[in-house]
């Protein structure tokens, strides 16, 4: 029973830590499959988290906060889109710029509006997303093994967590089973062919960028309205980059994206839980190594030592109609 309890604790915090990663990585999936590289996931998430924290406090409503997060994040996406699609600028440079602008602007505006030293005011219960208890969670708790798993692991998360996990099959379906998805992927592989078929490459890419903005906004709202009670300075703390790493680790496919995010979330949960406990066989692992592991794994994968990650063919290349 002890082991079960331990497993549940770890699994629970894994789910909690993976949720924003999954949303952000799926966001990246949409743009990158359409041929627009985006290292601005971090900035959009942070912008979304900030907007959610502000609006949820003022309106005392979590839904209003979520909406604000999505709006801000989509606007930032459109800046990235304008620079990299319309102006054919360097997509990496544009992403870096957005990360900086947001990192600075959130602190300055937050301080000017609330004066709480790099945070938005703590949100009351009603202005946050509540944990949802699934039906029969309490009645089934007594059932051996499955009962606690259902009651503690599957039930009892916030709506956005369920949304994140539902978005995985939904993204798969959109990308692989709809006309929109086919065109989106085609725009990332061979935009010339899409153009020949009479479809606007630019508008396709803009739509992909907007999808990215929506998901990043939700990821940000999760951070400030579900995982925490408000926005704090730099609260994304590199999650956008971990999501990017997960996206590459998953070779730009939806279900592996979820698995990669769960793996990275688990590493994080494990590092927090076992900071100072020596492990069997290995001995005491430095926390710093655990923290660096997602990045190291991604580098190793990218170098082609575990399979090969091949990015969308037209990724990073602005589309020019005639040559």
């Amino acid at each position: 029973m002890d082991y079960l309890q331990l497993f549940l604790e770890l699994a629970q915090s894994t789910v909690r830590l993976s949720t924003p990663l999954i949303l952000a990585a799926l966001a990246g999936l949409f743009t990158e499959r359409a041929g627009v590289f985006d290292i601005g996931l971090e900035g959009k998430m942070l912008g979304g988290a900030f907007a959610a924290g502000c609006v949820a406090f003022v309106a005392q409503s979590a839904m209003a906060g979520l909406l604000a997060a999505v709006v801000v994040s989509v606007l930032l996406s459109l800046v990235h889109g304008y620079a990299s699609i319309t102006q054919r600028g360097n997509q990496i440079v544009s992403g870096v710029a957005i990360n900086f602008i947001v990192a600075g602007a959130t602190v300055i505006l937050g301080e000017a509006w609330f004066r709480q030293g790099g945070r938005t005011p703590a949100l009351a219960e009603g202005a946050r997303f509540q944990e949802i208890t699934l039906p029969f969670a309490e009645t089934l708790r007594g059932v051996p093994l499955l009962g606690p798993i259902y009651a503690e692991l599957i039930s009892g998360h916030q709506a956005l967590t369920y949304l994140a996990f539902l978005m995985v099959p939904a993204s798969w379906w959109i990308l692989y089973r709809t006309r929109f998805g086919l065109r989106l992927r085609a725009v990332g592989e061979n935009p010339g062919a899409v153009d020949t078929a009479g479809i606007s490459v630019l508008w396709m890419r803009y739509r992909a960028v907007i999808c990215c903005g929506i998901l990043c906004g939700i990821a940000g709202a999760y951070l400030s309205l579900a995982a925490n009670a408000g926005w704090t300075k730099g609260m994304t703390a590199g999650k956008g980059y971990i999501a990017l790493a997960a996206l590459i680790f998953a070779k730009w496919r939806p279900v592996p994206v979820m698995l990669a995010c769960l793996l990275f979330g688990f590493l994080d949960a494990f590092a927090i839980r076992y900071q100072s406990t020596p492990l069997p066989l290995i001995g005491k692992v430095p926390v710093q190594l655990m923290q660096a592991l997602p990045y190291i794994l991604t580098v190793v994968l990218l170098a082609g030592f575990i399979g090969k990650a091949i990015p969308p063919k037209a990724g990073g290349v602005p589309y020019v109609k005639e040559r």
Binding site: A83, S84, Q91, V93, S94, F100, I101, G104, I108
Partner: peptide, 24 residues
């Protein structure tokens, strides 16, 4: 009310306008 984070914004804007939007 203007902390040093203002520099980070300016830095981002310079990267955006001198880099990504250089041809605008």
């Amino acid at each position: 009310s203007i902390s040093r984070d203002m520099i980070v914004i300016i830095q981002g804007l310079v990267i955006l306008f001198a880099g990504a939007l250089e041809h605008m």
